[in-house]
Design a protein around this nucleic acid. Structure first.
Length: 189
DNA sequence: CGGGTTTGACCTGCGC
DNA sequence: GCGCAGGTCAAACCCG
């Protein structure tokens, strides 16, 4: 759980069906090309973002990459094999790469434009907040996400995405696009 | 009535 | 093998 890959590829000119299009690249091996940002720089910028976003009613206001996460057991690795030795005899269990955002938000759910259905909630060890499990409701799209609030800082919500969307975004995400645009700015540092 | 949420049970992997 | 923790299922429930 220590070594996660970069969270914000955000290539400047990628044709995308949604602000979260970079999630569609998770099955692309090139995601290793993306560089990690220094968490200190990143978080430093975030504080200003928080104020801005808060005044715009966005659901989530700052975003950072998982390299700064130290929550035990919160995330898997980025190379598709989340479990350390998660393989079955005969066929190996393929786990999709997972990508996490750390966001500072009053609400748990980021309105990323896709429709999600909650399918589970679990209490997490060493965390007084439960982890929620969501699946994309679009037919044939089995993207999942987990949402968890950090117990050490309850203002921070970690959203972990697994898989890629196979469809267009389903509703307007003006607010979220604004966040994404800000993310790109930060990513350029 | 359809779609989403809640929640306890169940499954699986892992460490001891 | 056992117990624990994470992840998923599915029935019941809720709500527009």
């Amino acid at each position: 759980m220590e070594n996660f890959s970069t969270l914000f590829p955000c290539p400047p000119s990628t044709p995308s069906p949604s602000p979260f299009s970079f999630l569609s690249m998770v099955n692309n091996s090139s995601h290793h090309d993306f560089q990690t940002h220094k968490p200190s720089d990143f978080l430093g910028l975030m504080s200003s973002t928080t104020a801005t976003a808060a005044s715009m009613e966005v659901p989530a206001s700052d975003i950072t990459n998982v390299d700064s996460l130290q929550t035990k057991g919160l995330l898997g690795s980025d190379d598709g094999e989340v479990k350390s030795s998660g393989k079955k005899k005969g066929e190996k269990k393929i786990r999709k790469p997972r990508y996490a955002f750390q966001t500072r938000s009053q609400v748990d759910i980021l309105d990323d434009g896709y429709r999600w259905r909650k399918y589970g909630q679990k209490a997490v060890k060493n965390n007084r907040f439960p982890r929620s499990y969501y699946r994309c409701t679009h037919q044939g799209c089995n993207v999942k996400k987990q949402v968890q609030r950090l117990s050490k800082d309850e203002g921070i919500v970690v959203t972990t995405y697994e898989g890629m969307h196979s469809h267009q975004i389903e509703k307007s995400t003006d607010n979220f696009e604004h966040i994404l645009s800000q993310m790109q700015v930060y990513a350029s540092f």
